[in-house]
Every structure is written in C-alpha cells, then in structure tokens.
C-alpha cells in the first residue's frame, strides 16, 4: 500500500472581507474573525491531486491510503466530514494552542515529528499559505526528513505505481517520474478546486471522527526565528477617474479613445 500524507491549513476566506474591515485592523490582529474558515486554496490542490492518485491506483493492484493532517486548536466538523466524504481515509488534527501563523520552522518540526512516527511514501501540500505567504514549510520539512522537494507542482498522475509529476516554473514545464519518497508542493496547479461531496457521500461518513493528538509542549518553548511586530492595511496608490456617459455606447467610445491614445 502507498501512503500519502496531505498537509492542509484552515484559513480565513479573505475574498469576502470588505475594505472597511481591513481598515479596522489592530497592530497584531487583522480583525477578520467573522469571515468564513476554509481550506487554503493551495492545499485544496494538494488534496484534490491526492484523491485523483487514489482513484488511478484503485484501477490497478496498488491501493493508496490518504491521511490529511492539519495543525491548530480545532477543526470544524463541516471541513473534516467533507474530507471523509470525498475519499480521504484518515483526518488528523495536531492540537496546538499557541498561534501557528508566521512560524514555518515550528510548523515543519511538528509535521516532521508526526512523519517520523508513521511511514509515508509521499507528502502533498500547497507551496504556500495565502495568509502568511511564507512558502517555507515544505522546504524546511524536506531538509528535516532529508527527502527531495518538488516545488511548483502543476500536475501529478499515478501510473505503474509511480508518481509522474509536471512542474511549471517561469516559461517552462518539466516532467519527470519520481523514484523515491518526496515532498510535492503544489503551486498554480491545473486542478485547483477540491471536489464537492454529494449528500449521499456526506451521510455515509457522518459518524466518523478525526484523530486528535496534542502537540508536544517542547515545540512552544523554542524561540521563534520570526517575530511579528505589526500589521497595517495595504494602501491603494491609484486614484480612479470614472468615465461617464448617457449609455454603454458613449462610455465605450471614451474608453476606446483613451486606450488607443499614444
């Protein structure tokens, strides 16, 4: 059996946060607690590709087992029931009371400890988190585990018991067959949505529970390599001048003349 670990973060959905909400932030808190919590978009790609690999493997003789792992104080039932419903075999919460944002070194050490206790053939994760934008967890984990890191993963398929990977960097796609356990960091992947579960699939898994483990307290005692000092709103630099007109035709005419002007 091939075992894949998928690391995911649960983050604020910033798409629906209003400008006025951002402007109310305090120096250490963005003040968007009211916004929905979602799986980070980069990690959604990692989860979706893991599910696709599992489906490909089910057609041959080598089954794939999927473990989805997150770190935080809690995990909502809506999120984990959906993960079970779409085909994730096991969901693990590493319970950590201390804030986990902006601590890539600590996060990678916590995941490293978990992976040392269990054997995985591949680790999938988003290359970065849309909130902290660090993009360091996968890289640090690769060094700690001493396994190769494949960054900018755009597509993965599972053929003949091997992962065939496609990466996209600058003006180049690169394809290769991966021969050893590795970490796959997804960035701007071709399939960036996690599939939706049907009602029937959700009902089937509604009694399933996640595995919860407390994070070793020694991780909190170590000094962070990065300290957050303050947060401030990103100001806008352009002053928009609106094009007016009696109808769309008039506005389009002004727009076109401005656009074509040298």
């Amino acid at each position: 059996m091939i075992r894949i670990l998928i690391c995911f973060a649960v983050v604020h959905d910033t798409e629906n946060v209003l400008k006025s909400d951002w402007e109310n932030l305090t120096s250490q808190n963005p003040g968007i607690e009211h916004s929905n919590m979602i799986i980070d978009t980069y990690d959604e790609s990692a989860l979706e590709y893991a599910l696709q690999c599992k489906e490909m493997a089910s057609k041959v003789t080598c089954p794939i087992h999927l473990t989805a792992l997150t770190i935080g104080q809690s995990l909502s039932a809506t999120i984990y029931q959906n993960l079970f419903a779409v085909g994730i075999d096991r969901v693990v919460l590493l319970k950590e009371k201390a804030p986990v944002s902006f601590c890539p070194s600590r996060i990678s050490r916590i995941i490293h400890k978990f992976t040392c206790d269990e054997r995985f053939d591949a680790i999938f994760m988003g290359q970065q988190n849309s909130i902290t934008c660090n993009g360091q967890t996968g890289i640090r984990l690769s060094n700690l585990l001493n396994v190769p890191l494949i960054s900018y993963v755009n597509d993965v398929v599972f053929i003949n018991n091997k992962f065939h990977v496609k990466t996209k960097k600058r003006l180049q796609y690169t394809r290769a067959v991966i021969e050893q356990p590795a970490i796959y960091c997804f960035f701007n992947a071709e399939r960036s949505y996690l599939r939706m579960a049907t009602l029937r699939e959700k009902l089937k898994v509604q009694s399933r529970e996640i595995d919860v483990f407390d994070v070793d307290k020694t991780f909190d005692q170590q000094e962070n390599e990065i300290n957050l000092i303050s947060l401030s709103y990103n100001p806008v630099t352009r002053n928009c001048q609106f094009i007016n007109g009696q109808n769309a035709g008039e506005k389009a005419q002004v727009l076109l003349s401005l656009f074509m002007k040298d």
Partner: peptide, 10 residues
C-alpha cells in the same frame, strides 16, 4: 500577507 491585503513587519 493575508492575500496581499495587509503589510506585516517582522
């Protein structure tokens, strides 16, 4: 940070 809506100092 925060999807490029906020500037953070570290």
């Amino acid at each position: 940070v925060y999807n490029m809506n906020i500037i953070a100092e570290f």
